[in-house]
Simulated assay, not measured.
Amino acid sequence: MRTNLRDDLKAALKARDRVAITALRSALAAIDNAEAVPDGHSSGDVTGSEHVAGAASGLGAAEAERRHLTEADLRSIVEHEVQERTAAAKEYAQLGRTDLAERLRAEAEVLDRHLRPTP
């Protein structure tokens, strides 16, 4: 799914499709955030610094193993992105901001295409 999102982002950039670019970048950022290591996780071979409290030093101090997400995890993240946009579009429509509501619905549609089974 991530590869498809990235490929679509490249195509959207070439086509200068701002709605698709925004939606796809947001979804990819949400996936990257979900892969991040939680706070407080440290590598085994890293030692603390005597000069700066909480600083890590040593081989691999700046590197952290990222989480590996399954296809189901990726699908769940994209579904959540679609749901957020749909809910926000509904709120904007109730407030009379149909321009913003339409843009969010269009973004949700771009992401929803990735949730449909491929023929």
Rank of each mutant, 00 (worst) to 15 (best):
T118C: 06
D7M: 04
N33W: 01
A29Q: 09
V37W: 00
Y92W: 08
T98H: 13
A55Y: 08
L69K: 01
S49V: 03
G48M: 08
P38R: 08
A56N: 06
R85K: 15
M1E: 00
L100A: 12
G48H: 01
E65P: 03
G54D: 02
R18D: 15
D17R: 01
H51M: 13
E63W: 11
G44E: 14
R2G: 15
A72K: 13
A93F: 07
L59R: 05
H51C: 05
S43T: 03
I77G: 01
A64D: 10
E50Y: 07
L95M: 01
G54C: 07
T118I: 12
V78N: 08
R67D: 08
R2I: 10
A89G: 10
A87W: 01
A34D: 07
V52P: 04
R25M: 12
A101K: 05
R105W: 09
R25E: 15
R113K: 12
L9P: 03
I77Q: 07
R66P: 02
V82M: 13
D112G: 09
D17M: 08
E91V: 10
L59C: 02
A29F: 04
T22D: 14
L100G: 09
A55Q: 02
A106P: 10
G48C: 04
N4M: 12
A101G: 14
G60H: 06
R75Y: 05
R6A: 11
R66I: 01
M1S: 13
A106F: 08
L28W: 04
A56W: 05
G48N: 02
